[in-house]
């Protein structure tokens, strides 16, 4: 079976997954996953549909257990703290590990308030409650980071639902970044988008990887090869192979990885 596969990294891993098992009712969806996700850079989780990519991703900020009939066993160490420890504060965890969903879900608020939402929740700008200028600056900053500022700067008070799908997804990116997460989980973030918007998101993520750890789930091999620095390959709920992207794409060790990369399976 799988064993601990240390990644060839320069720094210590940001997330260390240790013997992670997930069951949906009786279906054993993830089987004994060991993996390490390095600090900064983009880690792509690839594999055919139904292999547990999204399950693995959503277990990293414990959104997974919000569903019904799901059981999780194992440890995920975030900076040497087990996020599955009983004392873990879920809200804090999710602040530090953000999520970009496959489909944009703009909150039923204005564009400005969508970005400000998380900061208000955590009272991050509580000191300047008097004028709100700091919050304004932050909102602008994150909208710029997500590449949306120029398009919305004149209508920040408009409802977020009025934006196009591509703009909404960038808004969701800005919203996720605004609480300054150390890790950003992206679940097929471009699957609902047209090619141009998708390219925009990809470029933003590549810029972001300089100071954020990004984990992306994708079923597009080409997207993974364009973006990823590290790759985790899952097959039927098991981790088959993981390693630096260049190496894995060039010389896959496992026969299943080879077959998948060549398009023979999945």
């Amino acid at each position: 079976m799988s064993q601990a596969l240390p990644l060839n990294t320069h720094s210590s891993p940001h997330l260390r997954i240790q013997d992670l098992n997930v069951w949906y009712e009786t279906n054993h969806a993830l089987r004994g996953i060991y993996a390490e996700i390095p600090t900064f850079g983009i880690t792509a989780i690839i594999g055919p549909s139904g292999c547990g990519k999204t399950t693995l991703l959503r277990s990293l900020n414990r959104l997974l257990e919000e569903g019904e009939g799901i059981r999780v066993k194992g440890q995920v160490w975030l900076n040497e703290v087990d996020i599955y420890d009983r004392v873990m504060d879920l809200n804090e965890l999710r602040t530090r590990v953000g999520l970009l969903a496959p489909k944009p879900y703009p909150l039923p608020l204005s564009i400005y308030e969508n970005v400000a939402y998380g900061r208000r929740i955590h009272g991050l700008d509580v000191l300047d409650k008097g004028n709100g200028r700091n919050l304004d600056r932050k909102v602008e900053h994150y909208l710029r980071t997500a590449g949306l500022w120029e398009e919305v700067k004149d209508r920040l008070k408009a409802p977020a639902s009025a934006l196009s799908t591509g703009q909404q997804q960038r808004l969701c990116l800005a919203r996720a970044l605004a609480v300054e997460p150390e890790i950003l989980l992206c679940d097929e973030p471009t699957s609902a988008l047209d090619p141009i918007s998708a390219q925009g998101i990809e470029e933003q993520l590549i810029t972001l990887k300089e100071n954020t750890t990004i984990v992306i789930v994708t079923h597009l091999l080409r997207q993974a090869s364009r973006m990823a620095d590290y790759v985790i390959f899952l097959w039927m709920g098991e981790l088959v192979e993981c390693g630096p992207a260049k190496e894995l794409f060039k010389n896959p060790k496992d026969s299943r990885t080879q077959a998948y990369l060549m398009g023979k399976i999945g």
Partner: peptide, 11 residues
């Protein structure tokens, strides 16, 4: 998805 979006900024 809306709830998850809110949870994942720590609400």
């Amino acid at each position: 998805g809306l709830r998850e979006a809110s949870w994942s900024v720590g609400a």
